[in-house]
Amino acid sequence: MIADQLTGTQVDEVAAGIYRISTRMDVIPGGFTFNSYLIEDEEPLLFHTGYRKLFPTTLAAIQKVMPVTKLRWAGGSHFESDEFGALNDLLAAAPEATAFGSEVGVMTSLNDFAVRTPRGLGDGEEFSIGSRRMKWIYTPHVPHGWDCGILFDLSTGTLLCGDLFTQPGADLPPVTESEVLSASEGMRGMMDYYAQAPTTKGILERLADLNPSTLACQHGSAYRGDGASLLRELSSILEGERNRTLDSAGSR
């Protein structure tokens, strides 16, 4: 459904009780989507607060699903403006909500930025939001950011995967069963935002071992299907690039 006629912001349920809030912006040729994910439960959670300048739009979208005052958790993958820009506006509108991020993110950014004390989540930490259990996976530098992490909903198998599998374009379906790796690799070819850390392969394998059935991407369509296979295919591509780079450096 359309939440804001001016921005065209849409709200769509992409997994049971998980709503993609998506706003299209002309920041690259062909447009780009910025997605937040609202999870309904006894303690509702928002993953990615969106830009501060888009807060009225994000607020209107949340209100299409539930009163914003019911929100209890607000966080994101890593500290950038599209993940955390509207955090304090959101905390003001939802006075019982707690901000969250990785322990490193809280130490380096959120302790100073957030108007209320945030919660830092450790690698592998699980917490309940009612009928659902959420699991935090610390993913430093995957795809970028020392503080980067990913949230997994164990009840639906949904991986809130941040900037992984970012797809360009403005007119994309809310959820697709067509593979999204080709589009995301096209985006990376245009603007390589991956850190290519030595630990990347191991981190992607940990995510694949979760066997996610939905990849809730921050940019582009959510993907419904064999998430583990896509994660392993991405890992293979990145490992091949890393090995070629090391071989090239060693031959000089």
Rank of each mutant, 00 (worst) to 15 (best):
M1N: 09
A3L: 06
A3V: 07
A15H: 07
A15D: 13
Y19W: 15
T23S: 14
M25I: 13
S36W: 07
L38N: 10
E42Y: 05
L46I: 12
G50C: 09
L54D: 13
F55H: 14
F55N: 10
T57A: 15
I62L: 13
P67T: 11
K70P: 00
L71R: 04
W73V: 00
A74C: 10
G75I: 04
G75F: 04
G75E: 03
S77V: 08
H78S: 13
S81P: 00
F84Q: 06
N88K: 13
D89T: 09
L90V: 07
P95S: 04
E96W: 01
A97Q: 01
A97F: 00
F100K: 01
V106D: 00
D112Q: 14
F113H: 10
V115A: 14
L121S: 06
S128K: 00
V142D: 01
P143C: 03
P143G: 01
L154P: 00
T156Y: 06
D163V: 02
D163S: 04
T166A: 11
Q167H: 02
P168K: 07
P168S: 13
A170F: 04
D171M: 07
L172E: 05
T176L: 03
T176K: 03
T176E: 02
E177H: 12
A183Q: 10
M187P: 02
M190N: 08
Q196R: 15
P198F: 08
I203R: 06
E205W: 03
A208L: 01
N211L: 12
L215T: 04
Q218C: 14
H219M: 09
G220S: 02
L231V: 04
R232D: 04
S235E: 11
S236V: 09
L238D: 03
T245E: 12
D247A: 15
S251Y: 07
R252T: 09
